[in-house]
Amino acid sequence: MRQLVVLSGKGGTGKTSVTAAFAHLASEGEYADKFIVADADVDAANLELVLQPQLLEEQEFKGGQVAVINQDTCAFCGECQDVCRFDAIDYTDGLYAVDPIACDGCAACVYQCSTESIAMYEQVVGKFYVSNGRYSPLYHANLYPGQDNSGKLVTLVKQRARLQALDEDRVFVIVDGPPGIGCPVISATSGADLVLIVAEPTISGVHDMHRVLQTVQHFGVQAIVCINKADVYPDGADEIESFCEVNGIQTVGRIPFDLTVTSAMVEGEPVTAFHPEAPASMAISTIWAEVLESLLEGEV
């Protein structure tokens, strides 16, 4: 069983549109009933808008804890505010209260409170879903706005997807990753067999591709690169390709800028299903064939 994770560094390069198209293409190929899709971009979970899942299972996701001050026993000493390194204790109208958004859940205040007036409470910070996606089982989640613990939710989504894939002898899992290079990206990358970076040939896109590439390599996972909206700035696309060549990273194709991708999104369909002959669809099909080959290398 192999895990493919789609990343980008910079947001909005087209990760989700590419992932959705991969799910569609996989469903038309040799491994039609042999894969699972997971959406690991839990604070901007857009894959479901295209894969139109029918919900099978829904679970509350409990994140970290937050401190709550019991106002009846509080002695107003202010010690909690002194020890809090997250500026999470507000003092207004003579009362101390915890700002749950700023609270890191460290409980330092709990142990310092002389009247034992502070306790930790677990918070529901999101929802975890298992669905029948349009083309395969879909594992996804929704982190409530402003919440912490996205990495843990990413791990949960991936773990559950992986377990089903192992149970049912499925061949691969396709994971739509989050932007950036931090905690959720590291969680998404951990355990992956292959990372596809969807790069954008803009000055920002190139900069961020370098950072995500370093991150993926830092964790010892193999990365390959495709270039989206390649014709918007061909110089940038050339720069990406020559960089990859020098550094021994496989590039697997260019996707042209194509508004069909947006039209497909509005219709709630992967672009390859919406309009298979569109330039972007044709390019993604070619890329999928290469990605699949790299992913399954030595496995099947």
Binding site: D43, I101, L143, G146, D148, S150
Partner: peptide, 14 residues
């Protein structure tokens, strides 16, 4: 701000 809607975004917007 960074993209997304989790803690780094909140930390920026505060």
């Amino acid at each position: 701000a960074p993209p997304g809607a989790s803690c780094p975004v909140v930390e920026t917007i505060r």
